[in-house]
Simulated assay, not measured.
Amino acid sequence: MTQNELHPRHSWRISKQALYTILLASSALAQTSKRGLASINTHISDIRLLSTSPSPLSWYYNWSPYANTNQIPADRLQFVPMIHGIDATQSSQTEQVIRGLPQSSTHLLSFNEPDGTTGSGGSSIKPEDAAKAYIEYVVPFRTGKSGGRNWKISHPVTTGSPNGLNWLRKFNESCYKIDKTNGCPTDFIAAHWYGAYVGLTAWLGTLNEFYNTNSSSSSDLKIWVTEMAVPQQSADATTQMMNQTLPYLDKLEYVEKYAWFGAFRTNDANAWTGNGVALFANDGGLTKAGATYLGSGFTEGQKGEGAESAAMEMRVSLGMVLLVSACIIVVGAL
């Protein structure tokens, strides 16, 4: 053996160290990534691909206070609970569930699309009613009177439309009518956008101007884009929109987090968005958009490890054990 040759055991140790370094780097990337998920589907293989290293995703939410704890480890993706509407504030279970979430959950979303209809997933709340419920029910999470600790709370998230902006104006006016000093305090802003890249940049600029440029606050609020997609478009058009949008959001300082709407299979897409937004094909392989959203190292058609494959491996392993046992018995008898 020459000086330049390595003993096999040392070679294995170096590979192990390199692998450990790669895993650490992947974990650090996920923890610092802005990228997250709006909606988690029910396919185990899909969830594993989205939530385990080297996935760059760092957080998720599902429009409720209930985490997918049986599917996603709390130390892998940060769960962000949501108080969807007025009904949730009237249930004592909402506060109890949020109180019981792991310490890794630190942010709380409020009132989903109150300017929208319940039929489209919105909470349909008048600005005056939302302001009252926000001050009475949501703000106590911020102060620690509810939820077991001090949560960072968001203002209600409206649709990305002129109607949404008008709703926010009326909401803020109503807040200061109730509390002339504090209004409705918030720690971050949530936003939705369905449309082209240019429209997204304009909407985010509008929200930043409304909350930061025209505000007397000494510190700017960060924006979380909790839903975004380009509806009724082909896979190629969707991917093109992603290729423009993702680098933009990654670099935009006042955007803290963002999530694509479509962590489901094409068959599960709704008629309004169309199946071009889906991250997974019907067979569980990543779509072109899915591979783009997950980024480097992921390819179209790639699948996660599912329950079926795991069960098959277990059956094969058990079969081998039985076969070896039978051979031992036979040999022993001889």
Rank of each mutant, 00 (worst) to 15 (best):
Q93N: 10
S219D: 10
L109F: 09
P102M: 15
N166M: 10
G119T: 04
K177H: 12
P54S: 00
S154D: 10
N150D: 13
V225H: 03
V277H: 03
S15L: 13
A130G: 15
A25E: 11
T106F: 07
A18N: 12
Q244S: 07
V316P: 03
V80S: 03
V321W: 12
N182L: 04
S234P: 09
T118N: 09
E313F: 01
L37M: 10
Q233E: 14
G148K: 10
S174D: 04
Q232K: 12
V230L: 13
T106K: 12
L109V: 01
S110K: 03
R13Q: 08
L279K: 04
Y61F: 13
T287Y: 02
P140K: 00
S58T: 10
S27L: 11
V157A: 15
A131W: 00
G100L: 08
S120T: 13
T245H: 01
K34G: 04
P156N: 11
V198C: 04
L252N: 15
N267S: 10
W193I: 07
G195F: 06
L252A: 15
F264P: 03
L49A: 08
A190V: 02
A67E: 03
Y60E: 04
W272C: 08
T186G: 11
T226F: 14
G276V: 01
F171A: 00
R149T: 09
E173R: 14
S174K: 03
A235Y: 02
I14G: 09
A307E: 07
S154M: 04
L207D: 06
L168S: 09
S161P: 02
L221H: 15
Y248K: 08
S154Y: 06
P231I: 11
K170P: 03
I40L: 04
T292H: 09
A191D: 09
Q3M: 06
V330W: 13
